[in-house]
Simulated scan of single mutants.
Amino acid sequence: MILILKNRATDDQIDHVLQRVEALGLQHHLSRGTYRTIVGIIGDEELLREEPLKAIPGVAKVVPVLPPYKLASRDAHPDPSVVDVSGVKIGGGNLGMIAGPCSVEDPDRMHRIAEHVRASGANLFRGGAFKPRTSPYAFQGMGIDGLKLLREVGDQHGMPVVTEVTDPRLVEVVSEYADMLQVGARNMQNFALLTEVGKSKRPVLLKRGMAATINDLLMCAEYILSQGNMNVVLCERGIKSFDPATRNLFDVAAVPVVHGLSHLPIIVDPSHATGRPDLIPSCAMAGLAAGADGVHIEVHDCPEEAKSDGPQALLPDQYRELFSQMKSLAELLNKTISPVSETSA
């Protein structure tokens, strides 16, 4: 850790800072420059976590050398993590290809969509049983009945299922039916929810908040990891922007940035990022080219009848064509689209 002192810090203040560091059993290195005086602290930074160093007279700024997300950082885990979702691997060269409608709907439609995306090559099926919506009057999901239907569809078509959990009180029941728990963008900083999914044994798909920095995202992942659940997959789904041309700003650079900072896998969601089916293929390919560990795409066989987010869904034939392109790119990048485990069928 480095302490940057104020320009006019007195000798007494500097001495006091050094004494506080020594009192913690740490070593220090004092460097006096023309405009700044810097104190380098040598030792275990964990001893300093609870110390209000910035409150010491004369201290202008405290700069940690190590990231605050200890468990999520590459310092703690240099090799990329591989998350196993009921046999489907994500990370370390394995791609998780998630597809399905935004919301769980009627059984016939769910089975038709699952059949299409499974035949195209998707290895994880998604659908929301609980839907946090901007408007309280919008469709909020089918709830428990939706979970049961999603499980039935996943089992019949041999696909692990991903669904969102919106409330800490729902974690246990959602875990009974889902192979992977999704924490949506609106709940990324719901720390009570993060703690509960961290206590669960299910893999977690953590979406980046609409106004969250990459550091925010990794700190939220740390909440889950700190509870003993190391099976976390991050998702770049677009962030707020001033430009109305797309639903959100697709921050494709977040993928290599996260890989440089963390061992956790990260996938991209061009459906929510763009909100435009015509842009989904190019953004999906861009995400894979940037190093994403998978792609999350909404698919619906009749978008105009969708309960939610129909305008951003691909038709099954469009998804099949895109998947063929993504598969070719994956081969070029020496990535493997993780096959669905035979035990899932």
Rank of each mutant, 00 (worst) to 15 (best):
T10K: 02
Q19N: 08
R20K: 15
R20G: 00
A23M: 11
G25F: 13
L26M: 09
H28F: 15
Y35D: 15
Y35R: 14
R36H: 14
R36A: 15
D44M: 09
L47G: 01
P57Q: 07
V59H: 04
V59R: 02
V62R: 04
V62L: 09
V62H: 10
L66D: 10
L66F: 15
L66G: 00
L66C: 01
P67V: 11
L71E: 04
D75H: 13
S86G: 04
S86C: 09
I90T: 12
G91Y: 07
G91S: 06
N94E: 13
G96P: 08
G100P: 09
P101G: 03
C102R: 04
D108T: 00
H111T: 00
I113W: 03
A114G: 04
H116W: 14
V117A: 04
S120P: 03
S120K: 03
G121R: 02
R126A: 06
G127S: 04
G128F: 07
K131M: 13
Y137A: 06
F139W: 13
M142D: 03
R151K: 15
V153R: 00
G154V: 11
G154A: 12
G154S: 09
D155T: 13
H157D: 00
P160W: 10
T166G: 01
D167I: 05
P168M: 13
P168C: 11
V171G: 04
E172L: 10
Y177F: 15
Y177E: 05
A178C: 12
L181E: 04
Q182P: 11
G184N: 05
R186G: 14
F191P: 00
T195G: 00
E196H: 03
G198S: 08
G198F: 09
G198N: 07
G198E: 05
K199A: 13
S200A: 15
R202V: 07
R202K: 15
K207A: 11
A212P: 01
T213M: 09
L217Q: 08
L217K: 01
M219R: 10
M219T: 12
Y223N: 05
G228N: 06
N229V: 12
N231A: 14
V233G: 01
V233M: 02
C235Q: 04
R237H: 11
K240M: 11
F242S: 06
D243P: 05
P244Y: 12
P244G: 03
V258W: 01
L261N: 03
H263Y: 10
V268D: 07
T274D: 02
D278S: 14
A286Y: 06
A290H: 06
A290F: 11
V295F: 05
E298N: 05
P303E: 06
D309C: 07
G310I: 10
P311E: 08
P311W: 14
Q312N: 13
Q312D: 03
Q312A: 12
F323K: 02
L333D: 05
S338T: 10
S341Q: 08
